[in-house]
Design a protein around this nucleic acid. Structure first.
Lengths: 220, 220
DNA sequence: TCCACATTCCAATAGTTATTAGAATATGAG
DNA sequence: CTCATATTCTAATAACTATTGGAATGTGGA
């Protein structure tokens, strides 16, 4: 076998990962799976996609072994097949933010209304949360909170936020986070909290960004 | 604009990076560009691709701003548009190696004949090279050596190796490296050196893997 | 056993991407 | 200015991918 043929085989394999990451829908599925395992049905519901289309995209991801499955009764739960997958997702997203001006602009417009806390604040955020100076809320669904959350965070899903405002202190700053920079749930939460008179801000990072930075994650 | 539409826009942008990385040919071009800037013609020659096809693939990469151009007379030199691009390439390759069994098998078969030095040896390799206990040779073309090389390495391009064997010591171990794990030049060099009676082995990593690990790189 | 439901498979179609060849553009040399 | 050369553009075709709808498979519960 000549060298060109060998190289072609190597790069063809490598490109399989690129192909897996070349579809907006598959990227969205990967981000959701990075929050914890989910059934096909749950993914279809969360993304608004047809169930059979979700299944087809998951099949593509499974063929690259970026995701794994686990059967539980009639449900099949998909999950990322290693800690390197969310890390790849993050490296990928950061490269996109660095190079695609269009993406940066779109992101800035989305997050413009909320003061976004950035990387520098991670350590001090943890300190202040530990001392009780601020309250950190995880506005994702409970199942995602249970699969992994910031150590000092309290679960308060966006869907229940309006009904459970009494649980929040009016005299302290509230920091909301969700799935990561592309997730808009914490923006919504901040908007609602401010309308109700709370002092609220958004933490741009999610659990995976936190973990990738070497910080601890807790499970319930 | 509703939330679904906003998300679709974000993931569509993100997928542009995935699409850029979804073609074996573009991945090969990126790896070559990670060794230093190159003209379209040079890339066509190195990959055996039609010049016009190379140009088309480079256009796709330029549109994601993963590569940049610089005009020099009649030539247009392409280069990676930031240090994060080789880092992304490495994260990408590592994920592929972790998840695609087929890729791992193919790689092991290719490198089976040469003892490959692994990550653990980096520090000690540098020590031994500094003390002169071993000789590290960079078998890439001179222009790539000049664009960046390991601090203690000597340039000895594969094409000239057979003619310049006299420059190598017969009493010390020789370590050859090239563009990285997918590059077969150092394998060829090791094979030739052993046939001539030298004690030779391959360093799997290239300049970019070295730099990504935080180790120093020199330029001429 | 049969049913309900979650998921996958299959086949058809629309949409996108890769490749090729020929033509066009841009630059420096004479 | 004209020529040779490097690169890009355009248009055509082939190959691949996404999406849809209907049918099939596999599981747990009645």
């Amino acid at each position: 076998m000549n060298i060109r043929t060998k190289k072609d085989l190597l790069y063809e394999q490598l490109a399989r990962i690129g192909k897996a990451l070349s579809s907006p829908k598959r990227l969205e599925l990967l981000e959701l799976l990075a929050q914890g395992e989910k059934s096909v049905e749950a993914l279809a519901h969360l993304t608004g996609m047809d169930l059979r289309l979700v299944s087809a995209h998951l099949k593509a991801l499974r063929q690259t072994r970026l995701v794994d499955t686990r059967r539980d009764g009639r449900y099949i739960h998909y999950r990322l097949s290693g800690q390197d997958v969310p890390r790849l997702w993050i490296a990928f997203r950061e490269a996109a933010e660095n190079h695609l001006i269009e993406l940066r602009i779109a992101l800035e417009q989305l997050a413009a209304h909320a003061d976004t806390l950035v990387g520098e604040d991670r350590e001090s955020l943890m300190q202040r949360a530990r001392k009780g100076e601020i309250v950190v809320i995880d506005v994702r669904p409970v199942s995602e909170f249970e699969a992994g959350h910031l150590p000092f965070a309290r679960s308060l899903p966006l869907a229940e936020l309006e009904l459970r405002l009494a649980e929040l202190p009016a005299d302290r700053a509230i920091v909301a986070y969700c799935r990561g920079p592309f997730c808009l749930m914490s923006d919504e939460a901040v908007e609602m909290l401010r309308a109700k008179g709370f002092e609220a801000s958004k933490l741009r990072e999610g659990v995976n960004e936190w973990a990738a930075a070497g910080l601890p994650i807790e499970q319930s």
